[in-house]
């Protein structure tokens, strides 16, 4: 029997009555474990960590952990987080979101926060559905898959989240799965260290709704699918194209440098700040 690693346990809120809202077998808890270990590895002071989320299954994560936690309105986590970060750049701001929260209702904030390159780490847990409301199709539900609001098959195309983030200007983009948990811990750690906007897409599963509607089996079966379909980016380079068909890449997909927004704003202040009596109208 596996024992809960002590380090994870010490970050959970003792006063919060468990159990959590997630279904048995859900991948979000695995992602939470990886995030906590990444933070612990980096020896961050938990007083300096702000975890911000929107609404949805994954967005329930912050309430359970012992940081400065902010559970906001649906889709708006990145906008709230922008305010938190800009007002106090010393905080390590980590946004937890999902495919519906982050890309549908929050899609505009997503692309603009990427573009602005503000130092926020976003962990987007992609389970291809709206779990909390019961299995409706989301912006990442694949073409022709079933949702309760797509009973005859989803006729829309799904987002490629990592390419979207990269095109929008994110300086660090990585993808992991809840199956490849060691890799996940590693890329979350890199993402937190990155000065600039970083995105980690975490492929997860919703066996309760998506899996059941699409006859994809148990949580274990769905995690096996992750294992079989994920190709590490280093390995992919050596594989012929036919071996990459229907597969997805995991690992660090994009890592570039661009001036970070809060640092740039501090330069503006450094250059233009004047004593109060010299400001406009009182020259």
């Amino acid at each position: 029997m596996e024992i809960i690693p002590a380090v994870t346990y010490t970050y959970l809120r003792s006063k919060k009555k468990f159990p959590n809202v997630w279904c048995a077998g859900c991948g979000i808890g695995i992602a939470l474990g990886a995030i906590i270990r990444a933070i612990d590895n980096l020896k961050l002071d938990r007083n300096d960590v702000a975890m911000v989320s929107g609404i949805g299954c994954s967005s329930r994560m912050p309430v359970y952990v012992d940081f400065n936690t902010l559970h906001t309105t649906h889709g708006r986590a990145l906008a709230f987080a922008t305010g938190v970060k800009l007002a106090n750049p010393k905080l390590k701001v980590i946004v937890i979101t999902g495919d519906g929260d982050g890309l549908a209702i929050g899609g505009n904030h997503f692309i603009h926060t990427c573009r602005r390159n503000i130092d926020i780490t976003t962990i987007l847990i992609n389970n291809s559905t709206y779990g909390m409301t019961g299995g409706q199709y989301s912006p990442t539900t694949p073409f022709m898959k079933i949702g309760t609001t797509a009973p005859y098959g989803n006729r829309e195309r799904d987002f490629d989240i990592c390419n979207l983030a990269k095109s929008a200007g994110a300086t660090f983009v990585a993808r992991g799965t809840v199956y490849h948990v060691t890799l996940l811990e590693k890329i979350v750690q890199q993402a937190i260290l990155k000065k600039g906007f970083s995105l980690v897409e975490v492929i997860s599963h919703c066996h309760t709704f998506y899996g059941r509607l699409n006859k994809e089996g148990t949580a274990v079966k769905m995690m096996e699918w992750q294992k079989e379909h994920a190709i590490p980016i280093q390995a992919a380079a050596k594989l012929p194209p036919e071996k990459l068909k229907d597969k997805f890449l995991i690992g660090t997909l994009w890592d570039v440098d661009f001036p970070e927004y809060c640092e740039e704003y501090d330069k503006v202040i450094a250059q233009f700040q004047v004593p109060p009596e010299d400001s406009e109208g009182k020259k």
């Binding site: 708006r76 906008a79 922008t82 305010g83 938190v84 904030h109």
Partner: peptide, 19 residues
């Protein structure tokens, strides 16, 4: 910000961070 929804959200976030 990118719209007014984001504007009020950022304002609330900033206030929570002490502004």
């Amino acid at each position: 910000m990118e719209d007014e929804i984001a504007s009020i959200a950022a304002v609330i976030g900033a206030s929570i961070a002490g502004a």
